[in-house]
């Protein structure tokens, strides 16, 4: 091989003719811009940093915020996991995982413990996260006050002046209408006792996992063009009233497949007669437990077979 060809081979071993993208799909300047935004977000926990959101292979509303974050931080040594409402095997999770396998030439996994980067739509895995792991959240609406205050000028002022009475007004309305704080997902939190943050539409069941985590949490909203972050070991407190304290969801049932009583359960309707089963939302957590021998009341159900076809 001549020198040029050698160089071509040495450039990157994965820069094969099939690859037409720069590493991680985004150009280097874009990655730089996003990394700067991430650094700023990490330096000011919970603060929404504006960034120049790019056109991605999927339209806005399909996870472009999360995808851009991952693209900016991923490297060839990473192990990438992508979940959608807890499942590795939904269409979109599979698509995004394949995307990064291709453009970042990176190993992928379904095992939470093995992953270094976990991109997620609307859930935090059950398995506790560890030092060195990064959670990337896809965020539709980064502004927790948007539903109450449509003006961007006003919400920015509220964050700047730490004037969050309005959020409590929303909680008050909940209690006066429903007798309790009825919000179940996207439950607002105070980060580091300074910024009010939307944790993305994760169930409030997952809110406690944000507090004092060992992992770095990154949040990206592609359409709204905002990035925010919770660094490891940060105080995160869900809002409540003294006489209506924050409570997570509880089920009477256990997971029908693996008998777990400590995970977030999805309700699956089985037929038109109203038959239903409750299954772990975190598909890997459930399959892992089953692999360890745990059996729930419907352990033989056909749903169990799906993860045998899990994609690479």
């Amino acid at each position: 091989m001549n020198a040029q060809a050698n160089d071509a081979v040495l450039m990157t071993s994965s820069n094969s003719p099939e690859r037409y993208y720069t590493y991680g799909y985004l150009d280097e300047q874009t990655k730089r811009m996003i990394r700067r935004a991430i650094l700023k977000a990490v330096a000011i926990p919970g603060y929404q940093v504006p960034f120049g959101s790019r056109e991605m292979p999927v339209p806005y509303g399909w996870g472009t915020g999360g995808i851009q974050l991952t693209a900016a931080i991923i490297g060839p040594d990473d192990v990438y996991k992508c979940i959608d409402q807890g499942a590795d095997d939904t269409t979109n999770a599979v698509s995004i995982r394949r995307f990064f396998a291709k453009v970042a030439d990176v190993a992928t996994t379904e095992d939470t413990a093995e992953a270094t980067i976990i991109q997620s739509r609307h859930r935090i895995p059950e398995h506790p996260l560890k030092d060195g792991q990064i959670m990337v959240f896809q965020v539709p609406q980064p502004e927790p006050l948007r539903g109450l205050e449509p003006r961007e000028m006003e919400t920015r002022a509220m964050h700047a002046y730490e004037e969050y009475g309005l959020q409590y007004v929303s909680l008050y309305e909940n209690v006066s209408a429903f007798g309790r704080i009825a919000a179940t997902a996207g439950y607002p939190v105070m980060v580091d006792e300074r910024y009010l943050m939307s944790p993305s539409p994760i169930p409030k069941f997952d809110n406690p996992k944000l507090h004092n985590s060992q992992a770095l949490m990154l949040f990206g909203a592609g359409r709204e063009k905002r990035i925010y972050a919770i660094p490891p070991h940060t105080t995160v407190r869900s809002l409540d009233f003294e006489d209506y304290p924050f409570e997570t969801q509880k089920w009477e049932e256990r997971c029908a497949l693996c008998a777990a009583d400590d995970s977030y359960l999805d309700e699956v309707v089985l037929d038109d007669q109203g038959q239903r089963m409750f299954v772990c939302s975190d598909s890997h957590y459930c399959s892992d437990r089953r692999a360890q021998g745990f059996r729930g009341p419907m352990a033989g159900h056909e749903l169990v077979d799906i993860d045998k076809d899990a994609d690479q």
């Binding site: 309005l166 007004v169 909680l171 008050y172 006066s176």
Partner: peptide, 16 residues
């Protein structure tokens, strides 16, 4: 009621 109570919430009151 929330309109009136907001003045209190703005002052940091947290007992519904």
């Amino acid at each position: 009621g929330a309109n009136v109570a907001e003045s209190l919430m703005n002052l940091g009151r947290r007992h519904y």
